[in-house]
């Protein structure tokens, strides 16, 4: 996994609540047996017209948000299906961080497994960020995982919470597998004991 330490980037404001994983990547893209190229399907239902032409008003189709690596979205982001493809679509497009007032549990876990940092900030901060980056799309946001902070050019710092173990995994680019395998003796003992 690609480590996540500090991200210095512009952001795209997605002023929508309850963005579900079907919106992030519709099911028709899920029959692929590899992750590559998933970004092409990202938000396809709201990003393109039925004939494939981009919808000009959609945030990712606006030139001023090209290259944005932070997505700022509304509450309950990533709800619905457990498809990890939603995370792969976001990272394949180039996002490294999603800021929202709250995330669905499975999406949150899947993000951490792929080096995509989900940052939960209070709704009023998210509202302020939306206004800020809509007004000034060139705004550089610094997301610092070590400090657990989001910094803005005017000096504002917003703290976010993250599980200590997950933080280490992201900082070091480690996945869970090695850690779980180091507990082999405990797993064997559990499996040897009768269930009831």
């Amino acid at each position: 996994m690609q480590p996540f330490r500090t991200l210095t980037a512009t952001a795209a404001p997605l002023r929508l609540e309850n963005v579900d994983t079907d919106q992030i990547i519709p099911a028709r893209y899920l029959t692929a047996v590899t992750k590559e190229g998933m970004g092409k399907g990202l938000f396809s239902g709201i990003r393109y017209h039925p004939d494939g032409a981009p919808k000009e008003e959609f945030v990712l189709n606006k030139a001023e948000h090209d290259g944005a690596q932070v997505l700022i979205a509304g509450r309950n982001f990533g709800s619905g299906s457990s498809r990890e493809h939603a995370v792969w679509a976001l990272t394949d497009h180039g996002f490294r961080c999603v800021i929202a007032p709250g995330f669905a549990d499975i999406f949150y876990n899947n993000s951490l497994k792929n080096g995509l940092l989900p940052v939960a900030l209070p709704e009023e901060v998210v509202n302020m960020l939306w206004d800020l980056v809509e007004e000034a799309p060139e705004t550089i946001i610094v997301v610092n995982l070590t400090d657990q902070s989001v910094a803005l050019p005017d000096g504002q710092h917003h703290h976010f919470e993250i599980d200590a173990f997950r933080k280490i995994c992201l900082l070091e680019g480690l996945d869970d597998m090695g850690y779980i395998m180091s507990k082999e003796a405990a797993i064997e003992a559990y499996e040897a004991a009768p269930a009831f």
């Binding site: 493809h85 779980i180 797993i187």
Partner: peptide
């Protein structure tokens, strides 16, 4: 019983374990 993503499916297949926080 709960849903998991592809990475966690891999962890379970390999180890029969998942790291979890108490909900």
């Amino acid at each position: 019983a709960f849903g998991i993503g592809t990475s966690e499916v891999g962890h379970v297949l390999a180890t029969q374990c998942l790291l979890q926080k108490r909900p």
